[in-house]
Design a protein around this nucleic acid. Structure first.
Lengths: 251, 251
DNA sequence: CGTTGAATTGAAAGTGATCAAGGCGTGTGG
DNA sequence: CCACACGCCTTGATCACTTTCAATTCAACG
């Protein structure tokens, strides 16, 4: 329900596969590259809501790619508190190249019912032999890193009100990249508690700031659908600058 | 002055070059690999304190490696606030593979007088042809990412007191990896303001929490030298778990 | 129509921010 | 050689954004 396949801009550019769509936002992938990616994602498995896709301490046997639904990368503190360090949407890697490390240092949970592609490591290696794809994969890694840095800024130096607005601006673009956002709206199948865990806030406070965002006429949020009423005003309010996402400007 | 070359465990394992020392903590590098790394770092330049090593919006011409001194990766917000997203110490890359992106989305500043190696991109490519080194370089990238995630947790879910303690625990290990920390102490040539910018706090509050850390007998901090009076108590106080640094346990 | 998870609302308490001033050490210039 | 300046660390008092704790409303569902 939360993740009805709306596919706003589906036919855009081979957006059947979100990974292809995402990587397509930076390079013009050759047909063979696309096919290789699609083929690598052939083993798709379903994961129930609130189920861990991967647990802290595990050594992943595959590389996981989000195909449908949302997931959250998170860490649990000794006192039980939870911090989400990333929202994973279709097209995102859960653990690219994590084989190199001994074990996961955090967990990943499906926050909606999700479909995840299980890609064998050899397959990734094979993909890496295609020059365009290595670059694209590196691009994805570097952007993930940039998103982490922006996340730190968000949590560290922005007010709760701004941080939430900023998060929405980011998700808007990232979802656009995979054809899952319209010009001003997208599915946001995320509880206020998850937003709180992502931004280091309490659910109560998130609720209040959302109300303020609404009453200021910046957003509308109902039944898991977020509508940005005034994109430029929301960006300005949060100090959002999309450059860190390194996308060929389209939004 | 702040960064006197103490080289606590210098002769450890070819620690003349901090990059070699760091990568040596995960793989047994072949002599030829070490030489290749050392050779790649031949062009070392000095950077004055408070000078930018790289500015937001630039396209780096080289890959930069910290050889001596400290630097900070940071972003400036529209309102002028600053958030540091990483401390770079000897052995750290400033911008590995950043060529793939169009331009820097943040800046890097030397926070002490520093020595930085300028490595041409081709040189990095050449290094990547050595299987052990590619792995080691990937390891470094993945650990950098893990550090970013831990940073988010620090800023988002820990109290100021805990966050500062946690930061010290992390730096302790990272500096040990490059032979720049003794069992219980290391140079910390960082102002309280920098710590504040790193953790999303105010200098005033950092000052107060440092005092508390001191009066609780956990640390001693004088003239840029931090002494951890009780390593395990400091780790416990901050909920520090070193696993995210993915080091062959030595500390 | 009762159950359940999530969203709301209220009041009180706190951690950390702000604003302002004073102390300290060091390097520089008269 | 001492005075002054500058950067950084300290300290105090006050303010406010967020948290806590608790209770209530809502909406989807079986």
């Amino acid at each position: 329900m939360a993740t009805s396949p709306k596919n706003y801009e589906s036919g855009a550019d081979g957006a059947e596969n979100p990974l292809v769509a995402k990587l397509g936002t930076v390079t013009n992938l050759a047909p063979r590259d696309r096919l290789a990616l699609i083929d690598a994602c052939r083993d798709v498995r379903e994961v129930g809501r609130c189920r861990d896709i991967m647990k802290d301490g595990e050594k992943p046997e595959h590389v996981h790619v989000m195909i449908e639904g949302w997931a959250a990368r998170y860490k649990i503190l000794p006192d039980g508190a939870r911090q989400i360090t990333a929202f994973l949407v279709p097209g995102d890697f859960c653990d690219l190249n994590m084989t190199i490390l001994d074990e996961m240092d955090h967990s990943i949970e499906a926050i909606t019912h999700a479909k995840v592609a299980y890609v064998p490591h050899e397959e990734v290696k094979a993909l890496s032999r295609r020059p365009k794809l290595v670059r694209a994969l590196w691009w994805a890694t570097l952007v993930d890193e940039a998103v982490l840095r922006a996340w730190i800024v968000n949590v560290g130096r922005r007010s709760a009100y701004q941080a939430i607005a900023h998060l929405f601006c980011e998700l808007h673009i990232r979802l656009s990249n995979v054809g899952l956002a319209a010009a001003r709206q997208f599915d946001l199948p995320v509880t206020q508690e998850a937003i709180a865990d992502a931004l280091g806030l309490t659910p109560v406070h998130v609720n209040r700031m959302l109300q303020r965002l609404r009453s200021n006429g910046l957003i509308q949020l109902r039944q898991g659908t977020l509508t940005i009423l005034d994109v430029s005003r929301l960006r300005q309010a949060s100090g959002f600058n999309p450059s860190y996402l390194h996308v060929k400007q389209r939004v």
